[in-house]
């Protein structure tokens, strides 16, 4: 076929660049005008460290962080929290919306599971809290000890995890490392159940 090369190049560049502008720049401008919701708090340092572990261990490949509205899936009926809005994500970089729900949505996991114990046991062995779960365990976020002293643990930012007897290695206790506690803090902080303006 006869090709007018300059026209071809212009066409190729235009199709890509216009789509890029339309799909990323225009919504970027629209969203840049949004104010953070009053109830949304910036992450603490500990939560940010936990968020980095969430990224490192690839939690995003099984868990989304976006709640769908009524009439689109059962998120509302499952009590996973009001539909998320762009303002909820203003402090998120990189974004972790996710596209998979092998496990449940975590956008408001902190509201459903506010207990650090629960999160630590779950990260140590998901089946100890959630029978039938196919989530992998994260033993490197924990240490095994035979003896421990509360003061030493506290000084290190560690603590004993109340793992149920049948999931404990015989004669040992499980200690949550600071990394495990950071991740738990991030998960507990995932709570976007605050009301939005205009909805009380």
């Amino acid at each position: 076929m006869y090709m007018k090369v300059p026209l071809f190049i212009m066409g190729v560049l235009a199709t890509l660049l216009i789509a890029w502008a339309g799909l990323t720049l225009v919504p970027g401008i629209q969203i840049s005008e949004i104010e953070p919701p009053a109830g949304l708090k910036p992450y603490t340092d500990q939560q940010l460290r936990g968020r980095a572990i969430y990224i490192r261990e690839g939690c995003i490949y099984c868990h989304s962080q976006q709640t769908r509205p009524v009439g689109f899936g059962a998120d509302q009926k499952r009590n996973w929290g009001r539909p998320s809005v762009p303002g909820d994500y203003l402090y998120d970089n990189p974004q972790l919306l996710g596209t998979m729900r092998t496990g449940p949505d975590l956008f408001n996991i902190g509201a459903r599971q506010p207990s650090e114990d629960w999160h630590l046991i779950h990260l140590y062995n998901p089946r100890a809290t959630s029978p039938g779960s196919i989530m992998p365990p994260y033993p490197w976020l924990f240490r095994e000890e035979i003896e421990y002293s509360d003061e030493v643990l506290a000084a290190r930012g560690e603590r004993v995890v109340p793992v149920p007897e049948e999931y404990l290695p015989p004669g040992k206790v499980i200690i949550a490392t600071p990394e495990a506690r950071d991740l738990a803090a991030y998960l507990i902080g995932l709570n976007h159940t605050y009301p939005l303006e205009g909805e009380e």
Partner: peptide, 18 residues
Amino acid sequence: PIYSGVTQAASNWWYAHN
């Protein structure tokens, strides 16, 4: 490095599909 929040999700999936 110009995207964040939901715009970054848009650029992410614009890229991945593109």
